[in-house]
Design a protein around this nucleic acid. Structure first.
Lengths: 233, 233
DNA sequence: CGGCAATTTGACTATCCTCAACAGGGGTGG
DNA sequence: CCACCCCTGTTGAGGATAGTCAAATTGCCG
């Protein structure tokens, strides 16, 4: 029995396209690795040398201007794929936000394996198309939304994507939910294209208006989800 | 001889992965279509019913907020692929900016064909990965750059992407080049997440500083490319 | 030449950023 | 166990950038 059989993302990651024998072959060229919060797996601008599946945790994809401004261009969760197969440089760094566990492959090995397994490439294509859709939707937020619309959109997105691990929905109160953010205030600012001060002010405003509560720095209790939706623009 | 043999993007579009026989089969399920400037091929939010290759012209991909603000989330050129294969709704509209010619397929037909031709899916995957890289790079501009940095970045990107059709580089004067924009001022604003007035002011500023010249509304002569690079941030 | 739409310009304003000071709270060492 | 410290986050004041609204201008097309 390969270690993959125990893998929690076995049926959600791109590996779901493979049968047992193929999975053994893939497993032979990969290995799992733990990453601590703040630790990077891939650096912006380096040649693409490895790719990976996320097993546990949350990681950010980010780019920086020369003078140090940062923009988070993506956030990945368990079962997501990271890295740039098929050549080229990686256009963004990949850094863990929480304790994370990933299944890494050398890009060369992965490329060769993928080209021999069209089912895997198909899964990867579907995933990439979905990621492109999501990324383009985020561009509307970055280019056209106000700070308050950005914050509301962010909280909604978080409550949707953290569903599996980290967001509790009480079905008696569908308008309320609780989330544990994997982001610091600065990181939220880097996702939304704002400054940390503006993010902080938006949090306190939403709290004062009774839309959310902030039990601790990383916890957000959404008290009026509909109000957030109305504010998201 | 199929019509594909005469196709100008035959060797650059995803079709390049197919041999003559396969190409005939693909050709059998597609047809070419002309699109006038301002005409849409796909609408935001509709079920994905068709996909296409761009043969001629430039098209924009755009999303809108409910209250009418627009963000252009992508620009496609000859040999680029458009549409959302493998289900889902299209997250953005596709509208011609210039006279355009595309090779369209029903999504159902294309999906079935693609699944039988791994080489084609591989090409599509490479193209999609590249598009995702480009899109993420644009997020840095939208989220973190000032109006002047956005304008400079835009003109640089245009001078690179219009190379084949629409941008003249005089090799005696590598610091100068001339472009014919496929965009109105409003559309430039919608690409950069700015207002039309800000775009206009940036144009006149760059002109006054001698960095560019504006022979007509759609023409830009770059007089000092290095200055643009320095200003792009 | 006239009409219309796109663009430019100007004056004013709002939003968000910058800089600075303060507060809180989680962890460590005494 | 408590006090202190440091880092993160919050709050405030002021300013700059880009947005808004309005008017003038350009240039394209019949």
């Amino acid at each position: 029995m390969s270690t993959c059989d125990l893998c929690v993302v076995r049926n959600r990651a791109i590996c779901a396209s493979l049968d047992t024998k193929e999975l053994d072959a893939l497993n032979a060229i990969g290995r799992t690795r733990k990453i601590a919060p703040g630790e990077s797996l891939i650096w912006e601008g380096e040649d693409s040398v490895l790719v990976a599946n996320v097993i546990e945790g949350v990681l950010k994809l980010s780019t920086n201007t020369e003078d140090g401004r940062e923009q988070i261009v993506g956030v990945v969760y368990p079962s997501d794929f990271i890295g740039r197969p098929f050549g080229g440089k990686s256009g963004h760094g990949v850094t863990a936000l929480t304790d994370a566990k990933v299944c890494v492959f050398s890009r060369r090995d992965f490329d060769a394996f993928a080209r021999d397994h069209p089912q895997l490439e198909h899964k990867l294509l579907e995933r990439t198309l979905g990621e492109l859709d999501r990324t383009r939707r985020w561009m509307l937020l970055l280019g056209r939304k106000s700070a308050s619309e950005k914050m509301a959109s962010f909280l909604i997105e978080m409550s949707e994507r953290l569903n599996v691990s980290g967001c509790k929905v009480d079905f008696d109160k569908p308008n309320q939910r609780h989330l544990v953010l994997p982001f610091s205030r600065q990181q939220i600012a880097d996702v939304l294209g704002l400054t940390i001060e503006t993010v902080s002010r938006q949090f306190t405003r939403l709290k004062n208006e009774g839309v959310i509560d902030l039990p601790s720095r990383r916890d957000v209790a959404i008290l009026d989800f509909d109000a957030l939706v109305a504010e998201a623009g």
